[in-house]
């Protein structure tokens, strides 16, 4: 049982914008059910890294394996991959022309072609869980930022992904709304969802993550169990980073 293939493996991933290197050979193994927080200063490549995993960026080298299937090939069907790797963005982009429910149902109905009844029941259950059951028929403009972000998470979950990527999902929220969104993610962690979380919320990362990777200038400087990373960072760069955050 313990010899399972890791759900996601990244090998020597290289990404450049023209001559400018963004990721210099990233290696990472993600076991099923693990929560990995990706920390680092702005511009270190952590968002780009997540975007590569969802096929939103072209990569110049290395490999990404989802279970044992390589995603770095011309024939990769990203539409299928994206049903297995869900992603939520900083800018909580609900589609403003659709209601909350329509936003959530769009992909399950049109891409996955699942029966409406089943998906709707699942959507209602998820909405209930994030405390927004009564907003199903509202338009995004009627919701607060935190509510929109929770809906965006539900929308991604309703596709039943194996892995969730969170790209600074609380970065553009009012402080008061950060909590409600983080609670939802923490709930997911409890349920055993495999997640990669780019965040600046250190306390949250410490609490929720199993492992932390610390990135700077396109490299992983440190990869450690979360508790050890925060209490006893090994690299100088990580120590420096954590010190700045502590008043």
């Amino acid at each position: 049982m313990s010899e399972q293939v890791p759900i996601l493996q990244v090998k020597k991933l290289v990404k450049t914008y023209g001559d400018k290197p963004v990721l210099n050979g990233i290696d990472l193994v993600v076991e099923k059910g693990k929560v990995i927080a990706i920390l680092g200063p702005s511009g270190c490549g952590k968002s780009t890294f997540l975007r590569c995993l969802n096929g939103l960026e072209e990569v110049q080298g290395g490999d990404i394996l989802l279970e044992s299937e390589s995603l770095i090939s011309k024939s990769t069907d990203w539409r299928n991959v994206r049903q297995r790797i869900g992603m939520v963005f900083q800018s909580y982009d609900l589609f403003p022309n659709l209601t909350v429910m329509e936003n959530i149902l769009l992909s399950p109905l049109k891409v996955q072609k699942r029966p409406r009844q089943e998906v709707e029941a699942q959507a209602r259950e998820l909405l209930e869980r994030v405390g927004l059951a009564d907003r199903a028929n509202d338009y995004p403009r009627q919701l607060s930022g935190g509510q929109k972000q929770r809906i965006a998470i539900v929308r991604a979950l309703c596709i039943n992904p194996d892995i969730m990527l969170f790209d600074e999902v609380t970065a553009s929220l009012d402080p008061e709304m950060v909590r409600e969104v983080l609670d939802v993610i923490a709930q997911l962690a409890d349920q055993g969802m495999t997640m990669l979380i780019v965040t600046h919320e250190m306390n949250f990362a410490r609490l929720v993550a199993d492992e932390v990777i610390f990135m700077d200038k396109g490299n992983i400087h440190e990869h450690a169990p979360a508790e050890r990373f925060f209490s006893d960072p090994q690299t100088e760069r990580a120590q420096q980073f954590l010190n700045i955050l502590q008043f």
Binding site: N54, G86, D93, A156
Partner: peptide, 8 residues
């Protein structure tokens, strides 16, 4: 991008 990310 969000649309792509949900598989459209």
């Amino acid at each position: 991008e969000t649309g792509k990310a949900i598989g459209l």
